[in-house]
Design a binder for these strands. Structure first.
Lengths: 215, 215
DNA sequence: GCTTTTCCTGACCGTATGGTCAAGAAAAGA
DNA sequence: TCTTTTCTTGACCATACGGTCAGGAAAAGC
């Protein structure tokens, strides 16, 4: 019991407050956009005075930058499974599952990213040109290899990737529209399963993915 | 010659200025979001003094509302072809073509819509609940009919529609990302053709669309 | 020509926002 | 214990924004 009353160390305080602020900021940026978000709103949601935000993050833009960076790194991780897979059924299937899960659990992040890109990426253009470019080239190589090995039809790997991004992120970015068309109710567990299955089934069949013989 | 120097009538002036303002507003709202857009920016882009904007559109929100409404009506038109088609190959193929063309020619509108929905549709929620809901139900009926007639696989029509929206609008909403990944150059005519073909081919094959016998 | 209506616009106003600062509280270091 | 460093925060500031308004210009109506 006594241990839990030990005063927080400096490092703990900093880590905890930064996390609190970043989480609040992600929500507010997602709901209001960069221009519509205010430091006061973020402060209220984090339960801290506004001046305290400026102590940890000197400007609104620096706070926003860190939010976007965290999202981007999160997405890159989701694609690790891609490379190790023996073929498109396993690799793309798992990738779709992973990205759908992010859309479900982390919709605010997806919205912030979409907003940033739609506004011509003023903050993360360098990421697009370096990290994302390399990542995309690498994944296209994997797809081309699968095609060469006869594991799927010879589709354009670039547009396949765009379709994967578009379709999976749609469930986060347009979640409000989907909810409205669902009678005002959020998608149930069963509906999420159906969504994943629909997406996977149409895309995998659409590219003529053939299950690995040694799967 | 003399005719072209006739002073503009009141109706002409109004129509012309409103059009000028709406076009400028669409661009600015698309690039900066509702919160980031300023009446001054829109005025500058339209080449009019700010006070003149408030003469035609009393508030920023009323201007925004009209921009979003125009976009929505534009999209509804694009789906007329859907109903008349004998089957999914013609109907969905033409719909994909039409929406891809809008993404190419009218990307700002798509971005404004995306932004509005991402921010929980504060301005057009009623449209979602009425017009869009009815439109969606009607199109799902068409798809179900095609399925019943054996013209395509029994896929979930709802998620098929979401995939169509997501994929086609992605080329507008994420156009900047696509351009960056394309070496910083906008997609060429040939690349647009390839994009359309990729999307159509994967989706139509993915749903097992069978060409109409009497096509 | 005279009156009415519509259009135009520079100057102005209240407010909200991002950001600053000084002074104190609390932990760390010696 | 005394000093140093880090953290906290109410009060404050300059600016930019949405919106107003009065007074004039220009068509329309008669």
């Amino acid at each position: 019991m006594t241990a839990s009353y030990r005063p927080l160390s400096r490092k703990d305080i900093r880590r905890e407050n930064e996390k609190l602020i970043l989480e609040a900021a992600e929500k507010v940026f997602a709901e209001a956009g960069f221009g519509g978000a205010t430091m006061q709103l973020i402060a209220d949601m984090a339960g801290l005075p506004k001046a305290n935000l400026h102590y940890y993050f000197p400007t609104k833009e620096s706070l926003y930058r860190q939010v976007v960076q965290a999202i981007f790194l999160d997405w890159l991780k989701a694609a690790d499974i891609f490379d190790a897979a023996p073929g498109p059924v396993e690799g793309l299937g798992a990738y779709i599952d992973a990205k759908m899960e992010i859309s479900r659990r982390h919709p605010a992040g997806s919205k912030v990213w979409a907003s940033e890109v739609m506004h011509r990426a003023p903050v993360i253009q360098d990421y697009l040109e370096t990290t994302l470019m390399e990542w995309t080239e690498g994944r296209m190589d994997v797809i081309r290899r699968w095609i060469a090995e006869g594991k799927m039809d010879p589709v354009d790997p670039r547009h396949l990737l765009y379709m994967l991004w578009a379709t999976t992120q749609h469930y986060a970015d347009f979640g409000h529209q989907i909810e409205t068309l669902n009678g005002g109710r959020p998608m149930s567990d069963a509906q999420w399963v159906a969504a994943k299955e629909s997406v996977k089934s149409i895309i995998l069949k659409g590219i003529g993915a053939r299950p690995s013989p040694d799967g």
